[in-house]
Design a protein around this nucleic acid. Structure first.
Length: 835
RNA sequence: GCGGCUGUGGCGAAAUUGGCAUACGCGGUGGGCUUAAAAUCCACUGGGGUUUUCCCCGUUGUCGGUUCGAGUCCGACCAGCCGCACCA
C-alpha cells in the first residue's frame, strides 16, 4: 500500500486540471452565474497562511458552486503598483517593475501549488499599461464631468513616504505605512476625485447592502461618510467696514439664542483680516501661530485642553441682534463645516468646557422635556438633548424639531442662512509624487493651460529609466523625456503632469476587468460585465472596510452614470474573514511571525494547509496559528486516504450512484443501515453548512465523525456489501472535494473514476436515510428522570403517550406537533426530551 | 465619550428553532504493536462515588429576569478586542 504522498498527488492533479482547463469559464447566459472573488494581493514579501486562508475560503465556495452547476468566475490578479516596489528598487538598485514581477512570479507559483481553482487566463497586473491605460481613460471621463479637479490644498504629507496621503491613509495622525511617523500638512496643488458628489448616494445605497454585507462594515462606512443635517448661518460683524460676515454650521440652530460667542478655527483664512487694525489682547499673534502649528496628534487629542483667545471683534446674532465676541479656538476644525462655530455653552459639551474656562456667558435656551429647570450659570454640564425652547423670542415654547425648522426657514427668508447638509467625507486626493503608479494623463501648455491627453494618445506610459530617490517631487518631474511634450491643442512646448495616481484607483474597478481582461478598445465589454455582475461573493479582510470598498462603490456609481454598467453597487455579498495570527498579532514580515505557505505545502501538503485553516476556527474569526494542531488535520487526511485505499480494490469496478442511497430500497443489514444513515446525515448537514453558514469547521468535524464511525465498523467486508461501501466512500470523497481537492481527486480516481471529480456534481442526500429514524425520549417529572424510551421518528402523540405512561408511570399530555415538547399530567409537569 | 463584537474544559472550538452543554481536533495519561523510536491502533481525559453497559454533584464572565426548561431570549454589570472620535 502506498503512503499518502501529498506532494506527488498535488502536482499530479494540478497538472491534470490545467491540461483539461477545468477552471476556465466564459460568460454563458444559458447557465446561472456565480462570481466569487478574493481581494487581490499586493505582491510583496512572502505568501503566508494569512493569504492562504483568504483564498481557501473563496476556493471552497467556488468549487461548491461549480459542483452545484453554476458557471463560476473565480479570477486572480495583482495590485502591482505601490510604494514598497519603489522603495525596494531604491534600496536594491533595481527597477520597480523587476522587483514587482519577481514577486508576482513567486506569488503565482505558491498559489498554483495550493490548487486554487482560478481562471489564470484572466490574470491581471495593475502595473501593465494594458491595465492602467484604463485608469487614465476613466480619469479623463471624470475630468470631462468635473469629477476630477485640481486645487491647491492643504494635504497630509508623510515625510518618510515623501508623498501626499489621502485622509483615509492617515491613522490617528500617523502614516498608515509608518506607524511611528506623524503626518504633516502642506499646501500643494493636488488632483481630487469628487467623491463628495456621490456622498448622498454612497450613504443611501448602503441600504442595498443590508443582509449581504456585515453590519459592522456598513456602520463603518456610514460613520465615515458622516452626514449631518443642519443649517449655515451668517453672522455680520459689528463695526464692519465692508460686508463682512462669519458663516457657521450648526445642527442645532434652535439653540442660537444661547450663543455667547463665535469661535473660528485657528486656520480659518479670515482670522488675520479680522484682527488687522484692531486692538486685540497682547500676544494673540503668537498664540495663533502656535495653535496653527500644533499638529493634530492622536494622544493629545483626548487630553488636549481647549485653548483660545478673543479676537477683539464682535459679531451680531441675526436672530436677536445680540452682540457676541468672536474668538479663535483650537478645538474648531477647519476641515469640517465652515471652520467656524457658534458657541452655545448650555447645550454643547465642548462649548460648555470652553465657556467655563474663559468666563463666557452660559444662557439656557432649551429646557428638558419634563420641564425640569436648568439654571443659567449653575449648570454642571451641558444639556444636549432635545426639549422645549425657552428664552428664544418668538420661538419659545416650541419643541426642538419645530424650532429648528422654523428658524431655518426664517434664516432662508431673510437671507442670512440656509439649510445645509454637511458630510465628513472629503474628496479623494489622488495625486502622488511617486514614480510607480499610473501617470495622470494631463498636459500643461503655456498657451492653452491644462489640456487633457486625447484618448487616442493613451496610455501615457511610465518612462523606463527614472531617477528614483524617494525624496522630494515626483521622479517623473526629473525625467525630461517624459515631461517635455507637445501640446495636443497647439503643438507648442508643454509639460506633462508628473504626479501619479493613488494605487487605490487601481483596485477600485479591477474586478470589472476580470470579465474582459485583454480588451484594448474599452475597459471592458458591457455585455460581459452585465452577465457577471454584481460580484456574488467578495471575500477579504476587515482592514479594507472603508478605503477600498468605499472607493469601489464610488467608482461603480461613476461608471453607471457613464452608462457602462447598470447596477449601483458592485458587490452583492461581502465576507470579512478573520486574520491568521501568531503570537496574537497578524502575520507580517515586519513582525517576523509569518508561516510561509510554501513551507507548509512542502511539509504537509497544500490540502493539509487548506484543511487546517478551515478547521481551526470559523472563517470570520481570527485564527491563532498552532503548529501542533496541524498534525490533527494531517492525521485525518491520512486516515481517510488509508480508508479509501483499503476498500478501493473491492469497489472500483462497481457502478457509481453517489447520493442515490444506492440500495435504499434494498434490504440492508444493520451495519449497512448504520453506515448509510451516518453518511447521509453527515451529507445533509454538510450541504446545509456550505449553503448557508460557511461554518467549515463544523462541516469538517462532521466528516471526521463520519469517518470515525466507518472506521469503528471495520472490517466492512464483513456484513457490508461492496455497493454500499462504494457509496459511503464516494460521498465522503465528494464532501471533501471543495476543501481538500487534490486528495479528493486522488481518492475519486482510486474509487474508479477518471475525471478527478471535476465533473462530479454535489451529491444529493437521501432524505429517508438522513432523517433520524429513532429518537430517545427522556421522561422527566419535576426535573427527575422518570424513564427513557426509544420511539420511531414521526410517531404521533397518541402513540407516544401510552408508551411514556408505561415507562414513567404517568399519563402525559403531549403539547404541540413536534416530538420535543412539554407534557403535563394533571398538575404535574412532565418533559419529554428528545435526543 | 459614541458605535459594534466577543466571553463555554489545559488549548482551538461545537451546540438548526430555547430542549441530553463541551461534538470534532489539539494537548495529556495509560495500554497494544516495536529491540527501540517514529507512525499506527485501543482506552481514559469536569468533580466525586460505585454495585463500573451504574449513580450523584457541578458547570457556559458576574448578578438578576422570562420560561416547565436558558450557553442561546431580556435587563444590569464586569472583562477583553475592534472601529470612530473636539464632526459643531
Amino acid at each position: 500500500m502506498a503512503e499518502y504522498n501529498p506532494q506527488a498527488i498535488e502536482a499530479k492533479w494540478q497538472k491534470r486540471w490545467a491540461d483539461a482547463r477545468v477552471f476556465e469559464t466564459e460568460a454563458d447566459p444559458s447557465k446561472p452565474k456565480y462570481y466569487v472573488l478574493e481581494m487581490l494581493p499586493y505582491p510583496s514579501g512572502t505568501m503566508h497562511m494569512g493569504h492562504m486562508r483568504n483564498y481557501t475560503i473563496g476556493d471552497v465556495v467556488a468549487r461548491v458552486k461549480r459542483m452545484r452547476g453554476f458557471n463560476v468566475l473565480h479570477p486572480m490578479g495583482w495590485d502591482a503598483f505601490g510604494l514598497p516596489a519603489e522603495n525596494a528598487a531604491i534600496q536594491n538598485k533595481t527597477h520597480p517593475r523587476d522587483w514587482t514581477n519577481k514577486n508576482i512570479a513567486e506569488f503565482q507559483r505558491v498559489l498554483r501549488r495550493f490548487g486554487f481553482s482560478f481562471d489564470w487566463r484572466r490574470e491581471i497586473s495593475t502595473c501593465e499599461p494594458e491595465y492602467y491605460r484604463w485608469n487614465q481613460w476613466f480619469f479623463l471621463r471624470m475630468l470631462e464631468r468635473g469629477l476630477a479637479y485640481r486645487k491647491k490644498s492643504r494635504v497630509n504629507w508623510c515625510p518618510r513616504c515623501a508623498t501626499v496621503l489621502a485622509n483615509e491613509q492617515v491613522v490617528n495622525g500617523y502614516c498608515w505605512r509608518h506607524e511611528d511617523t506623524l503626518v504633516e500638512t502642506r499646501e500643494i496643488e493636488q488632483w481630487f476625485l469628487k467623491t463628495t458628489a456621490y456622498a448622498e448616494q454612497l450613504l443611501d445605497d448602503l441600504k442595498l447592502l443590508e443582509g449581504g454585507w456585515p453590519e459592522r462594515v456598513i456602520t463603518m462606512q456610514r460613520n465615515w461618510i458622516g452626514k449631518s443635517e443642519g443649517a449655515k448661518v451668517r453672522f455680520a460683524l459689528e463695526d464692519q467696514k465692508r460686508h463682512e460676515f462669519i458663516e457657521v454650521f450648526t445642527t442645532r440652530i434652535d439653540t442660537i439664542y444661547g450663543a455667547s460667542a463665535l469661535i473660528l478655527a485657528p486656520r480659518h483664512p479670515f482670522v488675520e483680516q479680522l484682527m488687522q487694525g484692531w486692538n486685540s489682547e497682547e500676544g494673540t499673534g503668537a498664540k495663533l501661530k502656535e495653535m496653527r502649528q500644533s499638529s493634530v496628534k492622536a494622544e493629545e487629542l483626548e487630553t488636549a485642553e481647549k485653548v483660545g483667545f478673543f479676537t477683539g471683534r464682535y459679531a451680531v446674532n441675526p436672530f436677536n441682534g445680540a452682540k457676541i465676541p468672536v474668538w479663535v479656538g483650537n478645538f474648531v476644525l477647519m476641515e469640517y463645516g465652515t471652520g467656524a462655530v457658534m458657541c452655545v455653552p448650555a447645550h454643547d459639551e465642548r462649548d460648555f468646557e470652553f465657556a467655563t474656562k474663559y468666563g463666557l456667558a452660559i444662557p439656557v435656551v432649551v429646557q428638558s422635556k419634563d420641564g425640569e429647570a436648568l439654571n443659567e450659570g449653575a449648570l454642571t454640564e451641558a444639556f444636549t438633548e432635545y426639549g422645549t425652547s425657552v428664552n428664544s423670542g418668538p420661538y419659545s415654547g416650541l419643541a426642538t424639531e419645530d424650532a429648528m425648522a422654523k428658524m431655518a426657514t426664517e434664516a432662508e427668508a431673510k437671507g442670512f442662512g440656509n439649510r445645509e447638509t454637511v458630510f465628513r467625507l472629503k474628496d479623494w486626493g489622488v495625486s502622488r509624487q511617486r514614480y510607480w503608479g499610473t501617470p495622470i494623463p494631463v498636459i500643461y501648455c503655456a498657451k492653452d493651460g491644462m489640456v487633457a491627453v486625447p484618448d487616442a494618445d493613451l496610455p501615457v506610459i511610465l518612462p523606463e529609466n527614472p531617477k528614483l530617490t524617494g525624496m522630494g517631487e515626483s521622479p517623473l518631474a526629473a525625467t525630461p523625456e517624459f515631461v517635455n511634450v507637445k501640446c495636443p491643442k497647439c503643438g507648442g512646448e508643454a509639460r506633462r503632469e508628473t504626479d501619479t495616481m493613488d494605487t487605490f484607483v487601481d483596485s477600485s474597478w479591477y474586478f470589472y476587468r476580470y470579465c474582459d481582461p485583454h480588451n484594448d478598445k474599452a475597459p471592458f465589454d458591457k455585455g460581459k460585465v452585465a452577465y457577471w455582475f454584481p460580484i456574488d461573493q467578495y471575500i477579504g479582510g476587515i482592514t479594507h472596510a472603508i478605503l477600498h470598498l468605499l472607493y469601489s462603490r464610488f467608482w461603480c456609481k461613476v461608471m453607471r452614470d457613464l452608462g457602462l454598467v447598470t447596477h449601483s453597487e458592485p458587490i452583492a455579498r461581502l465576507f470579512t474573514q478573520g486574520m491568521v495570527q501568531k503570537g496574537g498579532v497578524a502575520m507580517s514580515k515586519s513582525k517576523g511571525n509569518v508561516v510561509g505557505a510554501e513551507e507548509m505545502a512542502e511539509k504537509y501538503g497544500a490540502d493539509t494547509g487548506r484543511l487546517y485553516t478551515l478547521f481551526a476556527a470559523p472563517p470570520e474569526k481570527d485564527l491563532e496559528w498552532s503548529e501542533e494542531s496541524i498534525e490533527g488535520s494531517w492525521r485525518f487526511l491520512n486516515r481517510v486516504y488509508r480508508l479509501v485505499e483499503r476498500h478501493a480494490e473491492t469497489v472500483r469496478g462497481l457502478k457509481s450512484v453517489p447520493g442515490s442511497g444506492t440500495s435504499a430500497t434494498a434490504a440492508h443489514s444493520a451495519k449497512e443501515k448504520q453506515l448509510l444513515r451516518k453518511t447521509h446525515q453527515t451529507l445533509r448537514r454538510v450541504t446545509q453548512d456550505f449553503e448557508t453558514r460557511w461554518h467549515f469547521n463544523s462541516a469538517i468535524a462532521l466528516i471526521m465523525e463520519s469517518t470515525n464511525e466507518i472506521h469503528a465498523l471495520e472490517p466492512l467486508d464483513e456484513g457490508v456489501r461492496p455497493e454500499v461501501q462504494k457509496e459511503v466512500l464516494e460521498l465522503l470523497t465528494l464532501m471533501l472535494a471543495p476543501m481538500t481537492p487534490h486528495i479528493a481527486a486522488e481518492m475519486w480516481e482510486m474509487l474508479g473514476h477518471e475525471d478527478g471529480q471535476w465533473t462530479a456534481a454535489w451529491p444529493a442526500f437521501d432524505a429517508d436515510l438522513a432523517r433520524e429514524t429513532e429518537v430517545e425520549i427522556v421522561v422527566q417529572v419535576n426535573g427527575r428522570v422518570r424513564g427513557k424510551l426509544k420511539v420511531a421518528a414521526g410517531m404521533t402523540e397518541e402513540q407516544i403517550v401510552p408508551l411514556a405512561k408505561a415507562e414513567a408511570g404517568v399519563a402525559p399530555y403531549l403539547d404541540g406537533k413536534r416530538v420535543v415538547k412539554t407534557i403535563f399530567v394533571a398538575d404535574k409537569l412532565v418533559n419529554l426530551v428528545v435526543s
